[in-house]
Design a protein around this nucleic acid. Structure first.
Length: 740
RNA sequence: GCGGACGUGGUGGAAUGGUAGACACACAAGACUUAAAAUCUUGAGGGGGCAACCCCGUGCGGGUUCGAGUCCCGCCGUCCGCACCA
């Protein structure tokens, strides 16, 4: 906490942490702030009228300061999944547009309101405007509502909808005419009505828009409902100006400008520029009537939590001095040990004494901040702290420079946005406030791999209760699979395969798995079953198979140990055919497994080990010159190959092979390149693209030899039916294709 | 609505544009056993044929190529992310 609190205060000093009042969704049962997804997750009891909207002062980190940088740096993260980069780019949500100032009609405007600022990404469609709309919380809406009770009621309705309606997509567009009129920026004689509309968001742009019904679907729906003009201003490519009309589908793409005075005939891009230049040059209330503006969807990060767990925010509230940082000598601010949890609400706020303190500046009685930090703050810099956990400063810059960025980060896809974006922000923010400064210290994670989750089938009894896998017995296969409840014999509905959750009871206890199968076996199954980026489906049958392999490997090593030379024996001068074959298999497997582990293709690595094990088993029954030496090599290779995935078994095997060292400490063996390539290769022969035969031929055979041999093959002759070969394509070591 | 990914046997899944289904699970037959378990051997994409072998086959329809699961275009479906973002 000491270090994290120090970081917080340094961010505060840099203006990267701040306090602001905003509207939140408040859970009146738990007395805490609800995230949007919690309101909208359909859990029922939290949605609807139970959620309150309230004004709350909370702490934020200014992630928006880095919006551009976080977006622009995404392409440099070339070892991150495309998916995650796309998700982050969408989340940051950069859009280029303009802020336009509209003069309000003096006769209708409330006192103190002379202009209205709106944000648009489509200034080109300005001549298609037929109304303006503001959010219910917009100052202009509030001012207008003061003298208009019907409008005030409408605004209240909008606010309630904002926090309670889960199905936004079905919510109807609704508006209320404020009676205020605004002058069109390009024609002061053109007055447009200003509405309060439920689909305008206060926290995006300026909380106000202009509506161009012909160019935006929402605006069109709104215009049709309130009978506002619909003037087409963009002619989509391939449409005829004489016949083009807007019915119920807005033309929101690019095209040629029409009905737009001096813009007519321009492309949308040119019209954007023309309007921008025009408005930038115009003056209104002492400033340009329009300015180009880049907007982001990304909001600042609210880090306040009304919870006991989490790092206390090191701030003291003093009536005289205001917000006072806790002095460095008083850090860390610790959580009380005697908090109570018998009531809802923040235990720190409720604690009888904890929040009482004196102001470090004036010495008067003051109050501690009772919010704690979001635990995502902790996870945003732990990797930097880990480079030297003993450091007296939060981060040891030299250690960080040496170790960071993290070479390979592995985590679930569920962190694609929050954790990974917060970390990218926080690392920059702490660097800019004097910690971990260095040219390589901007992005925390050089490479990212998102692994899948462990999933399991779900089962539901006839009366709709979730059943655990141990309650159910399964019969049949494919579409005719059925399940019955063991205790009652009644049929069971087999449900979706989903992430294990206690709620749906589709869980298998890791302790049980380890107790019954062992950790090696569990790990082996998970690695072997699916590619690591995909979800793995936990099945009893699958883990049984892994268990059999554990036993089989042990037997194989035992057998091999008894048939091999002693450790450290020099290899013979000559190996017989079967011994050489075993050595080739061992070296190929070693090479392939190494490559696949490096590429994180663990399931393929496992398959290769299986394949090699099969060959190894078969070789043990043979007799060949030098076989005992080859067996030792193969057994040692196998042990080393399984070691990363089944370390306990590998150590047992290593010991059985006569060593009293740890295989974990052995270097990965080097495959002999000479044993990786075969003298003779088997290649397929196609006639007109269809495989008809195959041949085994010397690796160094010339194309002419290959062609001649291929044309003599029995299967080829049959398929040619006496026709001559028109063309023969020879791909050395791969394939021959004969066209006839 | 916008953005992205994916679609291969009964199942999980292999396959730098070059023999589709490696490997495993499940299944079946056989060996061993008084029996079962375990283990070992064998079989298997679908269809036809005694067999040799032939035809069809990677969601559907086109295209590029000597050659397409893989590349391109258009559909269909599934999943994921964002979503009244102006």
């Amino acid at each position: 906490y000491r270090h994290q609190q120090k970081l917080f205060l340094d961010l505060l000093a840099k203006g990267l942490a701040y306090r602001k009042s905003s509207k939140v969704n408040w859970d009146p049962v738990d007395h805490t702030v609800l995230a949007n997804e919690q309101v909208l997750d359909g859990r029922g009891w939290r949605s609807g009228a139970l959620v309150e909207s309230r004004e709350l002062t909370q702490w934020f980190f200014k992630i928006s300061h880095y919006s551009d940088e976080l977006l622009n740096a995404l392409p440099t993260l070339d070892k991150w999944p495309e998916k995650v980069r796309t998700m982050q780019a969408n989340w940051i949500g950069r859009s280029e547009g303009m802020t336009l100032t509209w003069a309000l009609d003096k006769k209708t405007a409330p006192k103190g309101h002379a202009t209205l600022e709106i944000y648009t990404t489509r200034p080109d469609t300005l001549f298609g405007a037929s109304f303006l709309a503001v959010a219910a919380d917009h100052p202009l809406a509030k001012a207008a509502a003061e003298k208009n009770t019907a409008l005030a009621a409408f605004c209240d309705e909008c606010r309630r909808m904002g926090t309670s309606v889960a199905d936004l997509e079905t919510a109807e567009k609704q508006g209320f005419d404020t009676g205020i009129r605004a002058q069109h920026p390009l024609d002061k004689d053109w007055l447009l009505p200003i509405y309060v509309a439920n689909f305008v968001l206060m926290d995006y742009g300026t909380g106000a828009i202009f509506g161009c019904p012909s160019g935006d679907q929402r605006d069109l729906d709104f215009a049709r409902k309130y009978d506002l003009p619909v003037v087409p201003v963009i002619l989509p490519p391939g449409q005829d100006a004489a016949t083009f009309a807007i019915t119920n589908k807005a033309a929101d793409g690019d095209g040629t400008m029409i009905n737009s005075r001096f813009l007519d005939g321009m492309t949308t891009a040119a019209a954007f520029d023309a309007v921008a230049k025009n408005l930038e040059a115009r003056e209104l209330a002492g400033q340009p009537a329009g300015t180009r503006k880049v907007n982001f969807r990304l909001r600042d990060w609210g880090i306040s939590r009304q919870r006991y767990w989490g790092c206390p925010i090191p701030i003291i509230h003093c009536e005289t001095c205001g917000i006072v940082p806790v002095p460095a000598k008083d850090l860390p601010v610790k959580l009380p040990d005697d908090a109570t949890f018998d009531k809802p609400g923040n235990p720190l706020d409720r604690h009888p004494t904890w929040k009482n303190c004196v102001c470090p500046t004036c010495g008067k009685r003051a109050r501690r901040e009772t919010d704690t930090m979001d635990t995502f703050v902790d996870s945003s810099w732990y990797y930097a702290r880990f480079t030297n956990p003993q450091s007296v400063t939060p981060i040891d810059t030299e250690a960080a420079k040496y170790w960071l960025p993290v070479d390979q980060y592995i985590g679930g896809i569920e962190h694609a946005i929050l954790h990974l974006l917060y970390s990218r922000f926080f690392f920059r923010a702490i660097s800019d406030s004097g910690h971990a400064t260095g040219s390589n210290l901007r992005e925390p994670f050089a490479a990212l791999f998102t692994q899948g989750m462990v999933t399991h089938e779900t089962y539901k009894s006839a009366d709709g209760k979730w059943l655990t896998p141990t309650d159910v017995s399964l019969q049949g296969e494919g579409a005719s699979r059925t399940a019955t409840e063991i205790s009652s014999g009644l049929p069971v509905v087999i449900g979706d395969i989903i992430k294990m959750s206690k709620n749906k009871k589709n869980v298998v206890d890791p302790d049980d798995i380890i107790a019954h199968w062992g950790a090696d076996c569990a790990r082996w199954f998970m690695l072997s079953d699916s590619p690591p980026e995909r979800d793995v489906i936990w099945t009893e049958a699958g883990v049984q198979g892994a268990g059999r392999f554990v036993q089989r490997t042990w037997r194989l090593i035992e057998d091999a140990a008894s048939k091999s030379v002693a450790p450290g024996t020099a290899p013979p001068a000559l190996f017989g055919d079967d011994a050489t074959a075993l050595r080739r298999a061992a070296h190929k497997a070693l090479d392939g497994v190494a490559r696949n582990i490096e590429g994180l293709r663990f399931n393929v690595a496992v398959a290769q080990i299986y394949e090699f094990t099969n060959e190894f088993s078969a070789a043990l029954g043979k007799s060949s010159e030098g076989l005992d030496s080859a067996i030792r090599e193969a057994a040692e290779f196998l042990t080393q190959m399984i070691a990363p995935m089944m370390p306990h078994l590998a150590e047992e095997c290593w010991s059985r092979l006569g060593y009293n060292t740890l295989v974990a400490k052995e270097p990965w063996p080097k495959a002999d390149p000479a044993l990786l390539v075969d003298d003779r290769v088997t290649i397929a022969v196609q006639v007109n693209g269809k495989r008809r035969d195959e041949m085994t031929i010397s690796r160094s055979a010339s194309n002419e030899d290959i062609e001649a041999t291929a044309l003599r093959l029995e299967g080829v002759v049959r398929a040619m039916e006496g026709r001559p070969a028109k063309k023969v394509i020879v791909v050395p070591l791969r394939i021959v294709n004969i066209l006839s």
